[in-house]
Design a binder for these strands. Structure first.
Lengths: 189, 189
DNA sequence: TTGCCAATGTAGCAGTCGCTACGGTTATGA
DNA sequence: TCATAACCGTAGCGACTGCTACATTGGCAA
């Protein structure tokens, strides 16, 4: 190869595209407005990513590891405290909430466009379920299958509650439900 | 008025459009393919409904998944048994599942297109939360606020789990999580 | 230095979008 | 009966879609 690809520029564009999608949504995403917003052209997005679908797949893949940081950042907290922290991050004003919204949108779009979104949505979703399963299995000293059920209750249940709070804005009701859910998922035996 | 509007035809078209949207999704819905599929023309959809957005709003309003029927049909079941029945209906092959999927999609789309979907999504959502709150308050003899938290956990939590099972296909893990969730939501105090 | 190829701009293609203008047909209340 | 408005087909508008062809520039390796 005479001249290597500019991977740095590519990563910059992917990050900017992800941020844009996280705040503006996937369903209405189109190349020209996206490119204009992040300071490039549709021509270049196709140049770096091939197709729009490929760009979306790589964007969603990029947003996946965000839960590892949360789990690793506070290894000494109890599972319950960690889960409450997770819930606060999912529904708060930080940078996690837009990612959660993006994943929820991807999962919902996968319902009727499986070939386009199902794989990336499932991959991204498992990227949350599996680390939480491992963490719960360790912290609660339960079997893998029990831990998987608890992790599913935590991650998917909290996602449903997050959707509720995003749409209805009724935070108090959702907080109470989240507390019930976290108790159930982290209770011994 | 010389000739009255044909409300019958309008209702037929609305029902057919709803069925089509429930199986093919909202995000990619467009007038021409929809019209072709239900035996009319985009011209007539605009004639009867004014705009595409108005058609969508009326479709979602019409197709609110009806939990009332489920609650009224089996008034003698325990809340736990009712909730398991609800879970089976949401994720099964009956006619509730497509409606649930449509509502999930509408809620997800409302995240980033609030003016277009938020009202219908929130309305449909409250149409589930409130009856379940009342039913739980009666059956468990708990206060309204406690019942609201439990109802939220049930309805929104199960929606999150349903999204999980739709996307990952891992029904066993989701069923186990649903059982944990239902226990937590219906346990006495 | 030179030759290759990534990077990037400009135009444009074929298709779809929501929606409308126009005109003809049909049913119905007056 | 007849005027009027609903009904409905055909055609098309302007905007947008993902994507591509073509040309030019510029940096790196040989």
């Amino acid at each position: 190869m005479i001249r290597p690809r500019d991977e740095t520029r590519r990563d910059e564009l992917l990050a900017a595209a992800f941020d844009h999608a996280a705040t503006h949504g996937l369903a209405t995403l189109s190349l020209r407005p996206l490119a204009r917003a992040i300071g490039t052209s549709d021509r270049m997005l196709v140049h770096y990513f091939g197709t729009k679908d490929e760009l979306i797949a790589q964007m969603l893949d990029r947003g996946k590891p965000s839960i590892d940081g949360l789990l690793a950042a506070s290894p000494d907290l109890t599972p319950g405290a960690l889960a409450h922290h997770l819930w606060a991050q999912m529904t708060g004003d930080g940078q996690q909430a837009p990612r959660v919204r993006l994943m929820l949108e991807a999962m919902a779009l996968a319902l009727h466009q499986p070939t386009k979104y199902a794989h990336v949505a499932a991959t991204a979703h498992r990227g949350w379920i599996e680390p939480v399963t491992d963490a719960l299995a360790r912290a609660l000293d339960v079997g893998h299958s029990d831990a998987a059920a608890r992790a599913t209750l935590l991650v998917s249940g909290l996602k449903g509650l997050a959707l509720d709070v995003f749409v209805t804005g009724d935070r108090a009701r959702a907080d109470a439900a989240a507390t019930l859910l976290i108790d159930a998922a982290t209770r011994g035996q």
